[in-house]
């Protein structure tokens, strides 16, 4: 029995290891031909990707040219801001569920969060596309704003703000769930000890409970970052589907500029995957996601280490 179970475990482990290996190997040609410039800005990404499809199909003359910065920038913008916004919201919501809500309110809020966690991303995309995007396009973006940039890009409701907002809502429940669990396991003796010192409940939560829940908060941020980086469907639907590097220097207009993160680009070009240079480029995007997810996990692990000294976390 033991060796059977161990064999199963090892084979699953091998498969999971293969995922990384296979993607990196398949990605290599794209990096090889572009070098470090793969990550640089330079020209219109969408034209470069289309040129791979329309270009010559003999291996020696493949069109490899690719400058991925707009997509990377789009990923940083959407995922980064979504996590930054979601983290404090998730902490407050988790505190609410565990420490504040009266039993009757909690019986409503808690299932609502679990339900939100189960909503498929395509539903978020649909709601975004059919409800939020038209509203933003008609009511929030002014004519002047559209006009000011229409020589480079068309402003629509599919833009960086909408994408980030929906992404924030999407990653919120999973973060809440993790933090709720951690708060629930904070020993009562700690919180009671703090209250007995005349520290009010909010300060007790902040100084003792949250402190003890820090590993979970870090884990939640890492997991949410993974989700946000990898979110492809919803983002491919609402982020504007143009490989454009939204520019913060554009002022208020920036918020309505389109972006398209890496994962969404992979989905958008799924149909061209049989074309060799495009396929390798898409796998290269996947490799970037893979490595950055792994780096975030590593960073989370590293941040958690010093906490162990004082008996927090496991």
């Amino acid at each position: 029995m033991e060796w059977l179970l161990r064999a199963i475990t090892i084979s699953v482990l091998v498969v999971i290891g293969l995922i990384a290996a296979a993607i990196l190997i398949e990605a290599w040609p794209s990096f090889e031909h572009n070098g470090i410039r793969w990550f640089f800005p330079g020209g219109d990404v969408d034209q470069q990707l289309k040129a791979m499809i329309t270009g010559p199909q003999e291996p020696a003359r493949y069109n490899w040219h690719f400058r991925g910065w707009p997509l990377i920038w789009g990923t940083i913008l959407t995922s980064g801001f979504a996590v930054i916004f979601a983290l404090p919201l998730a902490i407050l919501a988790a505190i609410f569920i565990v420490e504040i809500a009266p039993a009757r309110v909690r019986r409503v809020v808690e299932p609502a969060v679990w339900l939100l966690a189960g909503v498929p991303s395509v539903v978020y995309g649909l709601v975004g596309l059919l409800v939020i995007v038209p509203w933003v396009e008609h009511d929030l973006i002014s004519k002047a704003q559209k006009h000011s940039v229409d020589y480079v890009v068309q402003l629509t409701g599919e833009n960086v703000s909408v994408a980030t907002a929906i992404l924030t809502v999407m990653i919120l429940p999973i973060m809440i769930a993790l933090i709720v669990r951690a708060l629930q396991t904070v020993p009562r003796t700690w919180t009671e000890g703090s209250v007995a010192l005349g520290v009010n409940r909010w300060r007790t939560i902040r100084r003792v409970s949250l402190r003890a829940a820090r590993p979970a908060i870090i884990a939640a941020a890492v997991l949410a970052m993974g989700r946000a980086l990898g979110e492809s469907i919803m983002l491919s639907m609402v982020s504007g589907s143009r490989g454009f590097a939204a520019n913060p220097l554009d002022g208020a207009t920036f918020f309505f500029e389109p972006v398209r993160p890496l994962a969404a680009t992979i989905i958008d070009y799924a149909e061209g995957i049989s074309v060799a240079p495009l396929r390798h480029t898409l796998y290269a995007m996947g490799a970037v996601l893979l490595v950055s997810t792994a780096l975030f996990s590593l960073a989370g692990w590293a941040v958690k280490q010093p906490l162990k000294r004082y008996g927090i976390g496991t």
Binding site: T189, L197, G198
Partner: peptide
Amino acid sequence: LRRRISMVFQQPNPFPM
């Protein structure tokens, strides 16, 4: 009140700090 009347519990409960 709890600042003026402080309590020490049966089980030592130092904070994880």
